[in-house]
């Protein structure tokens, strides 16, 4: 039962690595034009899920659909429409930057030469430089150029910014926004696996927290920030000893101040604190990174 329109659809995915089951019943659905992130600790099953999507890890059980197609049976049709940047990209060491890009272009019918040149200049990569002499950051930049110049509808990035310095990370995010989303942004879909969340805060539309090979939480970014809030109330005297609404962590009481962390209906907590006599109530939405950290802390 494939619903129409989703670029990625994964249902009840199981992937076994030797004896260990790395992915255990994961579900994922990404609509066109969205930027969806996979958050998870190392070993949570993010990379294995991406590998299964790309046909690099054998699916044990479950269904996988890319553009509504079976990525294993219709491999050529699917692969022509997506590009992938792994966490540690490798290139043939005897090639120069220029040759590596020519090689990548030879597999792609719609190579965007202009975009390639623009990104080479933006990153300051020398086309004549040998690929083997590139730093880790430069290799990632080169892989990103190769991925974006291929003009894919779906770009999959695995831990794209880990191990990069802050300036390169910033350039990387800007390149994704400006170059990948340049034409028809409503049809450019992005799947990013990451645990470095803060620099992508404004780019991410929705996310799935992956833990133990399962999707434990899927939310829109705005919805998540609207729901996960830290609320502080200041009282004239001692803060109340108890708080009747379910919180993510035990309420924190500091003299006249009571702090609670909620993951739904923050207005309710706000109202209760006011009704209990707080003279000042302050609400702060959690960032996506903080939301991930509290979600990760809750799963054993």
């Amino acid at each position: 039962m494939t619903s129409e329109g989703a670029v990625i659809e994964i249902d009840d995915l199981h992937v076994r690595y030797g004896k260990a089951e790395a992915v255990r019943g994961l579900r994922l659905r990404v609509e066109p034009g969205r930027c969806h992130a996979l958050f998870g600790r190392n070993g949570a099953g993010k990379t294995t899920t991406l590998k299964a999507l790309l046909g690099l890890a054998p699916v044990d059980r479950g269904t996988l659909r890319l553009f509504g197609l079976d990525p294993w049976a219709q491999e050529a049709q699917v692969k022509g429409r997506l590009a992938f940047v792994p966490d540690a990209p490798g290139f043939y060491p005897w090639m120069s930057v220029r040759e590596a890009l020519e090689y990548a272009a030879s597999f792609r019918p719609r190579w965007n030469r202009e975009l390639e040149q623009h990104l080479l200049a933006k990153f300051g990569l020398d086309p004549a430089a040998p690929a083997k002499g590139l730093s880790r950051g430069e290799k990632t930049q080169l892989a990103l150029i190769a991925a974006i110049a291929a003009d894919p509808e779906l770009l999959i990035l695995d831990e794209p910014t880990s191990g990069l310095d802050p300036i390169v990370r910033r350039q990387f995010v800007e390149a994704v926004i400006s170059a990948f989303q340049d034409r028809n942004p409503e049809r450019r879909t992005l799947l990013i696996s990451t645990h470095l969340i803060s620099e992508l805060e404004g780019v991410i539309d929705s996310f799935t927290v992956v833990d133990g090979g399962r999707d434990v939480m899927t939310l829109g970014a705005d919805e998540a920030r609207g729901r996960f809030q830290r609320i502080r109330g200041w009282f004239e005297d001692q803060a109340p000893a108890s708080f009747p609404i379910r919180t993510l962590q035990p309420p924190r009481r500091e003299g006249r101040m009571l702090e609670v962390l909620v993951d739904h209906q923050p207005e309710e907590a706000h109202r209760w604190l006011t009704a209990a006599g707080a003279s000042r109530v302050e609400a702060t939405a959690l960032s996506l990174e903080e939301i991930f950290l509290t979600a990760a802390a809750r799963t054993p």
Partner: peptide
Amino acid sequence: VRVLAEQLRINRNTIA
């Protein structure tokens, strides 16, 4: 949309 997206480092679709 492009300029503002880059300046604020947010998704173009959000600006749109």
